[in-house]
Each structure stands twice: as C-alpha cells, then as structure tokens.
Amino acid sequence: MKTPSARPEQKSRRKILYINPRFQGGAALVISAVVIVGGVLFGWLVYRDVGDALREAAMRGHFVMETPYEIVRDALLWHLAGLSATVSFLTVIVFLLLVKAVRIGVGRAIAAFRASEEGDLSTPTEARGLTEFRRFGELVDLARASALSRVAALREEAASLAACGLPAEAFGPRWEELKRKIREVAP
C-alpha cells in the first residue's frame, strides 16, 4: 500500500530546469552556432560536389546506375562523416572550455571560502572566466565583507566595553547586548 504523502502540495511543484539563461542559454547558443556553420558548410560542399557528380553523369551518359543515389553516394557519405566529425569535435572542445571556465570560476570561489575559514575576509575572490562566475565572485566578496563588518563591529564593541570603566548598572545591559549580537553570528 502506498503511504499518502505528508505534503501533497509538493506533488504539483514544477522542477525549474532553465535557471540561468546566460549560462545554459549561452552554451546552447555557442554550440548551435557551431552546428549552423557546419550545416551551411556541408550544404555548400554537397551542392558543389553532388551537383557536379549529377551533371557529369548526365553529360557522360553512363547510366549503369539505377538511382541517382548510387552516383552521389560516396560524396554524400564522406560529407556527412566530415560534418559529424567536425561538429562533434568542435562541440566537445566548446564543452571542455566551458568545463574549464566553471572549474576556474568555482575554484576561485572555493579558494575564497578557504581563505575565509582562515580569517581572511577581505582578499578579493577575483573569479575569472565567464561573466556568471565573475558576478558570483563579487557576491561572495560582498557576503564576506558583510561578515567582516559584523565581526569588526563586535570587536570594537568588546574593546570599548573592556576599556570603558562603566558602572555595573550600565555595564550589564551592554554586556548582555554584546552577547546577544555574538549569538547572531552564524546561528
């Protein structure tokens, strides 16, 4: 027996696949451009070679072939193989370049988080490569800067409280307030 779902509203949730038009759409556009150029080149070459083969066959009058396909088969198959090989090769290169760009961009962000772990929240991420990763690097830097400003404010408050020499009545509330603010750091 099937267990009824505790959260039936989840059933109707659509999975969004097209999340980042610049990244996913950009990759699709670049690869499609390769395909279009390959297709146009193929069309031109086939028109030239197959057309020549058909005209030549018509002029020579060698009609031992039963269909025009037999006249152009070799040229057509060679061009098809060339199209598939060229487009596949170029597309794989485009994909591997994309993977490399992801690796560089994400690698810089990972390095920034590692540096943050060591306390360095100010050295810029400097993510290179695709615009998406540069933008993401900037977001990482802004988040780190925000964390740094929080910690810096707490440090100043702690230092001023340690040195202020306030009477106990004024010191107590500030101590509690500082404790509350510290609790808000990565709760």
């Binding site: 306390g119 360095d120 929240l121 100010s122 964390a147 740094l148 910690v151 810096a152 707490l154 440090r155 702690a158 230092a159 409280l161 340690a162 010191f171 101590w175 500082l178 510290i182």
Partner: peptide
Amino acid sequence: MERALREIGADMSRYR
C-alpha cells in the same frame, strides 16, 4: 568580564 572581552577582541582580530 573585562579579561574575557579582551580575549574575545583578540580572537576576533584574526578576521581581517
């Protein structure tokens, strides 16, 4: 308490 605050401040100073 003041010592704890100084220690916390020193600890926080590693963030830069």
